[in-house]
C-alpha cells in the first residue's frame, strides 16, 4: 500500500485474569490502520472494542501477538505523546477553566506559556467553543463539555485521535451535531481517528473503515471499507448506499451474536 501505516495489529490476544477465571477480551485481532483513516469499532458490550483502543493507547498490555503504533511499541508511542484520547465522559477538571483544562496536557508536556495560550485559542476555535475559554466546565452543557474534552485531546497536535464512545452519554440531537463537527474537524486536520461506538448510523456516517466485533471472546467479524465520499452531509444517511453499508454492519453484528443472548 502506498499509504503510511499508523497502527498495525497482528494476531493480538488479551486475556484478563479475574476472580472468576480468565476472560478473553481480544482474540486473534488483525488490523491495519493507515494515516488519515477514520476507523470505527462497533459491537455489543464485551466485544473488546474499548479494550483494543486501550491497547493502542498502552493502557492495557496484550498477552499475545504484536501491535505497532507509528512504527514503535504502544508504550513508546505513549511516552512520545503520539495520540490524544477522548473518554466517554468529558472528565474535565472542575477546578480549571475550559482553557485551563485544554492547557493541562500542554503544561505536562512542557510547552511555554505563550504557546499554551495560542494553542488553546486555536483548538477552542476548532471545536466551536470560541469565547468559552474562561468558563468553568460545570457552567457548560454536556455537549459543550465533550467538545472541550476533544479540544483538550487535539491541543498537543498528536497524529492519532482515539475516541471511546465520546458521544455515548449525549442525546441524539446533540450527537448529530457533534458528528457533523467531528467530520469537519477530521477533514481540516487529517488526523487518524479510532472511534468506538454502539451506534450503527454513527459508525457508518463517520467512518472510512468500520470494524465489526463480537464478544466471548472479543474478535473481529468483519471489516468494511466504506465507499462513501469524504464529504458527507447529514442527509447522506438517507441514501441507498448508506443503508446498504448499515445493513452489512447489522449482518456482521448478527453473525457474531451467540444464540443465547
Amino acid at each position: 500500500m502506498s499509504e503510511q501505516t499508523v497502527i498495525e495489529a497482528r494476531n493480538l490476544d488479551l486475556t484478563f485474569q479475574t476472580n472468576d477465571g480468565s476472560v478473553q477480551a481480544l482474540r486473534d485481532v488483525n488490523l491495519t490502520i493507515s494515516k488519515g483513516e477514520f476507523v470505527s469499532f462497533i459491537g455489543p458490550s464485551g466485544c473488546g472494542k474499548t479494550t483494543f483502543l486501550r491497547v493502542v493507547a498502552a493502557l492495557e498490555n496484550p498477552t499475545g501477538g504484536s501491535i505497532v503504533v507509528n512504527g514503535m511499541s504502544p508504550e513508546e508511542a505513549r511516552k512520545q505523546r503520539a495520540y490524544g484520547y477522548v473518554f466517554q465522559a468529558a472528565g474535565l477538571y472542575p477546578w480549571r477553566t475550559i482553557a485551563g483544562n485544554i492547557q493541562l496536557p500542554l503544561e505536562i508536556m512542557g510547552f511555554s506559556r505563550a504557546e499554551r495560550k495560542a494553542r488553546a485559542e486555536q483548538v477552542l476555535d476548532l471545536v466551536d467553543l470560541k469565547g468559552f475559554g474562561g468558563k468553568y466546565p460545570w457552567q457548560l452543557s454536556g455537549g459543550m463539555q465533550q467538545r472541550a474534552s476533544i479540544a483538550r485531546a487535539l491541543s498537543f497536535d498528536a497524529d492519532i485521535l482515539l475516541m471511546d464512545e465520546p458521544f455515548g452519554a449525549l442525546d441524539e440531537i446533540v450527537r448529530d451535531h457533534l458528528n457533523e463537527q467531528l467530520l469537519a474537524l477530521w477533514a481540516r486536520t487529517n488526523k487518524t481517528i479510532g472511534f468506538v461506538t454502539h451506534s450503527i448510523p454513527e459508525a457508518v456516517y463517520l467512518s472510512t473503515k468500520i470494524v465489526v466485533m463480537s464478544p466471548r471472546p472479543g474478535r473481529i467479524t468483519d471489516i468494511i471499507e466504506s465507499p462513501l465520499p469524504r464529504e458527507r452531509p447529514l442527509e447522506i444517511r438517507e441514501t441507498q448506499e448508506f443503508l446498504n453499508i448499515a445493513h452489512r454492519v447489522r449482518e456482521g453484528l448478527r453473525a457474531g451474536h451467540e444464540p443465547d443472548v
Binding site: 486501550r54 493507547a57 493502557l59 505523546r81 484520547y85
Partner: peptide, 14 residues
C-alpha cells in the same frame, strides 16, 4: 480520582 482521570494522565505520559 476516577480511573478515567488517571488514564488520561497516563496518555499524557505524565
Amino acid at each position: 480520582t476516577t480511573a478515567m482521570q488517571r488514564d488520561l494522565m497516563r496518555t499524557y505520559a505524565a
